[in-house]
Design a protein around this nucleic acid. Structure first.
Lengths: 209, 209, 209, 209
DNA sequence: CATGAATGAGGGTTCATTCAT
DNA sequence: CATGAATGAACCCTCATTCAT
């Protein structure tokens, strides 16, 4: 490995270091309530260094969204690439992916969500904004293609697959946000798994012929 | 009308004036990005005056949630009080209520949502926090009772009504947030109505016997 | 009693009412930390009314000083007017007066003191400032005349009576402030009486022939 | 001198810079009337920088007291460590110290005083409050030991040394405050030196056998 | 590249004072 | 006279960002 490579790797490692720290803090305290200096401290770097890797606070937050969406996208695309031929099984796999994403980082989707809704978007560089939009669209389209496949096979009823994908995405994100917020108030009871299972049960009943 | 009455009315009008201005600004710029002075300017009052009506910025925001939730709750309870005997029709009424709420203020639910998720809750006076929680719980229970009614009548399949209410609430909020965020990026195309219709169609298929 | 008289009396009663309330609050929280609205509430009047009786916050505070100084002055002048012929006994009477003032309102002198030191003086109307200065000077001169009397009688050593009065005044105020501040830290132990007694003992030894 | 050392020195110089500026302003305008921004301007720094060195306005004020008390304490302790065997000479030295402190900063003691009396104490960090209390107590005890020494030697009359120290402290502070306030009103005439001399004369007569 | 001290604009909030009723 | 709602200037403090080292 050449020196240039090592530099490159160290650089991207440091980027990840910052993003991980930022993710932890943004998740636990929210965007506005997290100070850049805290992120610096958490990542054991100085504030100035953060700005060598990210143009500003918004871009740092946006980069988290990109990373998360990329992760999600990759997993989703594996479903379509799989050998599985039964549409309902593919739907189950979708549930599995979404749930595992939730388990990996409970509010990953909430972040992606909040970010897109929020006005932080406006502060973003065109590049990053475009990337988020593209990833987001691709994720939706990938979900849609699972349904398309089912419709094509004749197992699912004829409906607009993109619209169904929107619904799946919405209900999933909605449940995660909603149950997480209930969780925050009463940490004892966590019904996310059950609610998600039920939601999928209903969706399958609703789309199957 | 006595002087005291008039005073009282003026006072509550002023409160509403502030809340409306705050709502507009919070909606378009978000909580943190909105300065109290802007709210003052928007409501044609002075900063000091805002503080005569609301203890602080958080309480002002929280009061918006309470007002919104109250509005929603009232509409929901009318469904159960209605003469309608057909469970599916009641479900349609629920859709109508949620949609009309959306039309009245597209991000009303988003606000309620974001608020509960956010850390702003911690800054709230106990009174206000309790009220929000109570309203929120009652709204859920009211939705649940629509399903209970259908199960009781034998039209809907036997399932936990509270869980279904959570799903309905989640999917509805999720769609609104999601479509609104797509809206923000591309204001030409608004598919909310269609997506909601489809979502309800699926839910009805999913819960009917 | 005519109507005009009653008006006058009510007016001065209200003045006193406000001053008493202000005194209590200034004493317990200090000048800056006391809000005019608190004084209004404590005196069961409205903020606006306070301003009918006092031009501003500083004048209200200054008026307290005037009242206190007047009270003190009256008591001091009685000593000189008394039948008592023994200079040392007159000195004892002086101690009694100062101590009873302290008992009446522990920080009366502290207030007079702080006020004169503070920059509040600058905000005062010329009238009030002049009055405070005149009272203050007269109080000093009255104390001085007690010593003059003793020197004249040949019981006290020949010294500048005004300077001695300054010292008496300083030591007395100093002790009150100092012991009060120790009091604030450890309310159990109150040595003011003992310290004052000792101070007078020393002074008497110091001035007697 | 290493870089770290220089950093350290610059840092403490900066601290002193701020404290000096703050001292000037607090002295001339009082605590409440002095804005942090003025202190920033006076020390040619930005407001934010002040907060890098002091947690808040109260702590800045408190730090001044600590510095002043430290200075005083050091001087007082030198009296006891000195070769001087004559108690009355030691008393003279005490007068000298107190007077030189006064000359160094005429209202140093007034500040220490006012601070302890004021409610600012409550806002202080435990550390700083403790330090002020400790210094204050030690200063008193050091003064007391001068008298103890005189009593032990048989030159002074048997009296509670701590109480005498309180009196000395009180009369000295009292005179400074009092004469300064007269000074403020009529800057022509400054009798502090004379008054202090007379006060010491009286005290010495009062405590000597 | 990395640092972290310094910046200074901006935010939330208070409160002495006014004035229409 | 009395009121108290309204004002708005001013204050303390934070924190995203910069830049000399």
């Amino acid at each position: 490995m050449g020196i240039a490579d090592r530099r490159e790797r160290e650089k991207s490692e440091r980027r990840r270091l910052i993003m991980d720290a930022a993710n932890r803090l943004f998740n636990s305290k929210g965007f506005s309530a997290t100070a850049m200096e805290e992120i610096a401290k958490e990542s054991e770097l100085s504030p100035g260094t953060i700005y060598l890797y990210f143009k500003n606070k918004e871009e740092l937050y946006g980069s988290l969204s990109v990373r998360d969406l990329g992760l999600l996208l990759e997993r989703l695309e594996q479903i379509n690439k799989s050998e599985e031929r039964d549409p309902q099984k593919r739907l189950e796999a979708l549930k599995g992916v979404l749930y595992s994403i939730y388990e990996h980082d409970p509010i990953l989707l909430l972040n992606v969500f909040n970010f897109q809704t929020s006005n932080l978007f406006k502060e973003l560089s065109e590049d990053l904004a475009t990337e988020i939009r593209r990833f987001s669209r691709r994720a939706l389209r990938t979900i849609a293609s699972i349904f398309e496949y089912g419709i094509h096979q004749g197992t699912f009823t004829q409906r607009n697959p993109i619209a169904i994908a929107d619904i799946v995405w919405s209900v999933f994100s909605g449940i995660v946000i909603w149950e997480e917020s209930k969780n925050a108030l009463d940490p004892e009871k966590n019904y996310i798994r059950e609610t998600l299972d039920l939601a999928f049960e209903i969706i399958i009943l609703g789309v199957k012929k």
